[in-house]
Design a protein around this nucleic acid. Structure first.
Lengths: 229, 229
DNA sequence: CGGCTGATTGAGCTATGTCAAGGGCAGTGG
DNA sequence: CCACTGCCCTTGACATAGCTCAATCAGCCG
């Protein structure tokens, strides 16, 4: 559903985003082309294999960037939250999306057309360098996760993931994510994830509330995560 | 060991590298600061945690970019060959190396000081965009490998890796890589890698010559690799 | 109340990791 | 040139983390 887009210059998540590197007039230039949509849980923002039409910026909510692995398992590449961009990689490389973006929680997301993004990139060096640095950071985290998935046991990966998700769900105070998604995030299956979380519960590291997970002992989880490093 | 650096403009691997996007005069500008070294097997080009002093460009040989995972296992993030750059990510993000680079085969490698690289980036937009696209491509491959390691069985990953390495070892015609490295590349241990390769041998997919691996049936390997997709 | 979706638990299996031993090739020194 | 040494490859036996399949349970909605 389309809604009125908040002006970038007044946007409260701008300080979390690279748009903070832009001047007021540059932000003004984005307004005419910008659109904004409200999405519901499990809705696709875009599908693997399609071509990008522009850049998405999350105003509210959580989005999982994922792809389908062997035997249909879904691997979550990253979880993006408020202020973060989605879909820039294909945009920069000029290729089709190599992954899909799906709404985890109800979300409000702005869209900047490709041409506006391109011209901003050319005009504003700081923004362009910021994009590059972001790309580098994402690459670094992808490489770390690759090594983790290869050699770190599920127990450690789940502990790590919970701590990371705790930030994304900071406002709510609890992590309300489907077990299947949690499993996809650390590269395992639902049942294994459930068992590990259940272990954490009996060790008083977390509590289960309804279906949500509350972190009780971050240090303990960190210790579990680092046990295998 | 330092050796005389070949001039970039006459370099035979330039067409494989992003320097192909540079003008003759831009290449000339690199000459004064450029150095070139010959390295032997297992020598470190740089260590995880140190700061980059410039960009490396492979003139000859193979280099593994790797990091140490849980319980001391080495994960190979990528294998770089002739014409490819190494160490650009930390250079672009201004951070320390988050991985190490180690020579696989005897190699000859040029080094461009950070400042020269920076000024080239600013002066030549095509080169700068080329760097960005390269970063995107590396990120995409890292994400694919993450999903593979998470859900694709070792057998499929080794088949895939052999096909990929076959390109890197194209000249030699055989893949002469230590089993431990091969294992590190697909995220498993030496013994498992050996067993799978030994299976491939009995299925006539590969042949073992001395310690090297010769691909006999690329299509067969591709089928094995895709079996699990 | 019935049906649905997602969480949980159990039982059993298998791929893969671990540990240990042997074998062969390559380089070194006499 | 030969013997020595050490590294790497290879193989076997064994242990187990984590996957699969299947059944049950707990909310939730119409």
């Amino acid at each position: 559903m389309k809604v009125k887009a908040p002006a970038c210059k007044d946007c409260k998540v701008r300080k979390n985003s690279l748009f903070d590197l832009c001047s007021p007039s540059e932000l003004e230039n984005l307004e005419p082309g910008k659109t904004c949509g409200v999405y519901t849980k499990n809705q696709f923002l875009f599908h693997e294999g399609t071509m990008p039409s522009g850049l998405y910026c999350i105003n509210e909510g959580l989005v999982k960037v994922c792809k389908i692995g062997s035997s249909g398992n879904e691997q979550i590449l990253r979880i993006a939250k408020k202020g973060e961009f989605i879909g820039y990689r294909s945009l920069l490389s000029g290729t089709s999306y190599n992954c899909s973006a799906v709404i985890v929680d109800k979300a409000k997301i702005c869209h900047i057309p490709k041409t506006d993004f391109r011209s901003l990139m050319h005009r504003n060096i700081a923004f362009q360098e910021g994009m590059t640095k972001m790309l580098c950071a994402i690459l670094e985290s992808a490489e770390n996760r690759m090594t983790d998935i290869a050699y770190k046991p599920v127990r450690g990966r789940i502990a790590e993931a919970l701590l990371l998700l705790n930030e994304a769900y900071h406002e709510a105070g609890v992590i309300s994510m489907a077990r299947k998604d949690l499993a996809g995030f650390v590269g395992t299956v639902k049942e294994t994830a459930i068992r590990v979380i259940s272990d954490f519960k009996s060790e008083n590291l977390v509590a289960i509330e309804k279906r949500s997970i509350r972190i009780l002992d971050p240090d303990g989880l960190a210790r579990v995560s680092n046990l295998y490093d």
